[in-house]
Nucleic acid binder design. Structure first.
Lengths: 120, 120
DNA sequence: TCCTTCATCAACCTCTTGGTTGAGTAGGAC
DNA sequence: GTCCTACTCAACCAAGAGGTTGATGAAGGA
């Protein structure tokens, strides 16, 4: 299992079945059996998926008689969006600057190289 | 390899080394050798990581003499943020409604159950 | 031409992952 | 008590991921 939280969250959502379960849980809490119903896999496999989601902090499980209602914890999403937004903004900012440089150059100049794109 | 684009992007970013490379590339383009330098792995391993990032659409590689400058493609991030935001908003909206229901109930009522949290 | 550099391809190894089956546990219902 | 339901645990298996080493390709410099 990945040590860092960000790796766990990304890995958990890398599986389409698990993303599907998150989508289902966004509508409302559900039991393991309810979550397993739409899929052509055993309830044990679904239980494993839920454990991955739980380890990532994406869901929590309580107890209610024999049932184990699963609950979506939306806060962890922020971890990802913060990471993503940081580097997206950084990359976009870089392009803005590159465009400025290109606009300030004469038309017959050479195309941009690695060095020009990566000013150190 | 995962078939759907979203799975590929999430899986690509589930590895801390690859996230690190994305962070490096947000600063500017780099060659495979430059990207490999900080890590205690072979350049072949780094080349494999870059292939994963490329298959996910997160980076592109051009040619420049023997070098293969790697370039960050920030647009794919939108795929993820859209997915994340959709379900986060949905979950938050659900809580807002749940809070309204709870507030409208008498104090001595039972704690919320799965059914109450999942009105269908 | 030969050499060096930068990077990929191919084969292999180990650990993880997503699935299975079978057994076990927890808690109503009868 | 004995069932039945809902779920988890344990062991196993096939496939994939991340790493290695060794060989190969592609391009500039001597």
């Amino acid at each position: 299992m990945a040590a860092d939280p960000l790796s766990r969250v990304f890995a958990a959502l890398a599986d389409p079945t698990r993303r599907d379960m998150v989508a289902r849980l966004a509508v409302g809490d559900a039991t393991v059996g309810e979550l397993a119903a739409p899929y052509d896999v055993t309830v044990q496999a679904v239980s494993k998926h839920l454990r991955v989601l739980e380890d990532a902090g994406l869901v929590s499980r309580s107890r209610e008689a024999q049932r184990r209602p699963v609950h979506l914890e939306a806060e962890v999403f922020d971890l990802m969006t913060k990471w993503i937004e940081r580097y997206r903004r950084q990359a976009e900012e870089r392009y803005r600057r590159l465009d400025d440089v290109l606009r300030s150059m004469p038309d017959d100049d050479a195309p941009p190289t690695t060095q020009e794109r990566n000013p150190s």
